[in-house]
């Protein structure tokens, strides 16, 4: 008997989660040619941005904790996606650490890669607080809220994933603009290719769920406003976050913030106030 994998009681879904899980991409180390970085270290701002990206990409477990204590854990299609998403992000973070390590000059700061290795809110006192990691709401508060939020919270959680992808994509784009190294370009393009399926799933699900339910859109607006961007900010210091958002969205660097504004505004049910709140958090 044929097995159906793309059904969902909330409506038709196109993204084939089973195919995504089956073809998940693991370690990229064998495909990274970083030899050119030995000849010239990365520019400091690119190096630091990549080190922060490595930490952010690895910080999947705190996010999973936040979403799995609600109805989201009951949606088997979504959890199948998230399990594979976390796996792919683990290896994206690993690739970024490899680039950072290769691109650290002789006098460079290995602390950056050590921070990246930690991958989650670390033990060091100057890391972001666990409050930042949970958006000020621990598992008890989230689980209690989830009791009344029901299925609509799934759409809100997927909206977090989508917006985080948009924010990180802007950072990668900025890295590409700031680095002329062919190895960096090839590596980032490879990473973006892996992330393309994440973005596609989030985008499709968010549009479907937020269009279908006003309550899902309301919960999404609230979650987006209450979140410290990007996701995983609890694993980096306040100074690192500030430098990262300035690197990515600083007004002198182009239209990244305006492009993000356009992407957010185009999402169903996301109002001007919510868009402004997210952008305010990123503009510093």
């Amino acid at each position: 008997m044929a097995r159906s994998w793309s059904t969902d009681s909330d409506g038709p879904a196109g993204f084939d989660v089973r195919e995504f899980a089956r073809t998940a991409r693991g370690s990229m180390r064998d495909h990274l040619d970083l030899s050119s970085l030995a000849e010239g270290p990365l520019p400091t701002e690119v190096h630091d941005a990549l080190a922060v990206l490595a930490v952010l990409e690895a910080a999947t477990m705190p996010h999973l904790r936040n979403v799995l204590v609600t109805h989201t854990h009951k949606d088997a299609r979504v959890t199948a996606f998230l399990v594979t998403w976390a796996f792919e992000k683990y290896w994206i973070a690993d690739a970024l650490r490899a680039i950072v390590d290769a691109g650290t000059g002789p006098s460079g700061a290995p602390a950056a890669s050590a921070a990246a290795r930690a991958g989650t809110a670390g033990k060091a006192g100057d890391r972001g607080s666990s409050g930042t990691a949970s958006g000020g709401r621990g598992p008890v508060r989230r689980a209690l809220a989830g009791l009344t939020q029901g299925w609509d919270v799934v759409g809100a959680h997927l909206a977090l994933g989508l917006v985080d992808d948009l924010v990180l994509r802007a950072a990668y784009t900025r890295v590409l603009a700031c680095s002329s190294d062919a190895a960096v370009h090839a590596s980032i393009e490879r990473i973006l290719a892996v992330k393309e399926r994440h973005s596609r799933f989030f985008d499709e699900e968010v549009r479907r769920r937020l269009s279908a339910s006003g309550r899902a859109a309301r919960l999404a607006r609230r979650e987006l406003r209450r979140t410290t961007w990007p996701l995983g900010s609890g694993a980096i210091t306040v100074a690192e976050r500030s430098a990262f958002t300035q690197f990515t969205f600083g007004v002198a660097h182009g239209r990244a913030l305006e492009d993000l504004r356009g992407d957010l505004a185009a999402l169903p049910g996301i109002d001007v106030r919510t868009v402004a709140s997210v952008l305010r958090g990123l503009a510093g």
Partner: peptide, 26 residues
């Protein structure tokens, strides 16, 4: 993945080794 949720409510999820293991284990 639902058992994972329970483990993630403990402070262990902040430890790199635990986080890495749970990613692969799941």
């Amino acid at each position: 993945v639902c058992y994972t949720r329970d483990l993630l409510t403990t402070p262990s999820h902040r430890e790199a080794d635990v986080s890495a293991f749970m990613t692969m284990w799941n």
